[in-house]
């Protein structure tokens, strides 16, 4: 019986070591190992839509839990039709934070909607260039993202 126990124990040790080597156990990604499940920028900061309702364009994001966007790094540009322009965007008040390098700044988590208007007499924008930048709370920041998005007209 003792021999059987010894054989089984040796087998368990071998299996366990092999499982670790083959990645059966949670693997580290480098020495700190806390950031290997991070999302790509498009999953972390989903630019959902740009919709026209009357004289307002509403641009919306869904920000994944554990991620945030910087208020001051959100920007818009009208690309079409030719000559289309935008007034300064109306962004909601963000969550104030004290950033080690940025100082006092504001961030957004969860759902975000920005209201955009255009100058009187100018054409309503139909295509936008949207820029934004954010980070994960895990201590990783994403490069500035720039996307082109067509406006969906909900007016009619």
């Amino acid at each position: 019986m003792k021999t059987a126990a010894l054989c089984l124990a040796m087998g368990a040790a071998l299996l366990s070591g092999t499982a670790a080597a083959d990645g059966f156990w949670p693997k580290k990604d480098g020495v700190a190992g806390s950031t290997h499940d991070l999302l790509k920028a498009d999953q972390a900061f989903q630019l959902v839509a740009a919709e026209r309702e009357g004289n307002t364009l509403k641009v919306s994001w869904e920000i994944a839990p554990g991620y945030y966007l910087y208020r001051k790094r959100i920007a818009f540009q009208a690309l079409a039709p030719e000559g289309a322009r935008l007034d300064a965007p109306e962004l909601p008040r963000g969550e104030p934070i004290e950033d080690e390098h940025e100082g006092k700044t504001e961030i957004y988590r969860g759902s975000l909607k920005a209201d955009l208007r255009w100058p009187r007499g100018a054409a309503a924008p139909q295509r936008l260039r949207v820029s934004y930048q954010g980070c994960a709370e895990a201590g990783v920041c994403y490069p500035p993202q720039t996307r082109t998005i067509d406006v969906i007209d909900l007016t009619h």
Binding site: K2, A5, A9, M10, A13, L15, S16, G17, A20
Partner: peptide
């Protein structure tokens, strides 16, 4: 005895690998 020996050995094998 067999179960305890297996658990200890498995933990040791994994620990050594890590």
């Amino acid at each position: 005895l067999i179960v305890v020996a297996c658990i200890i050995a498995a933990a040791a094998g994994y620990g050594f690998y890590r």
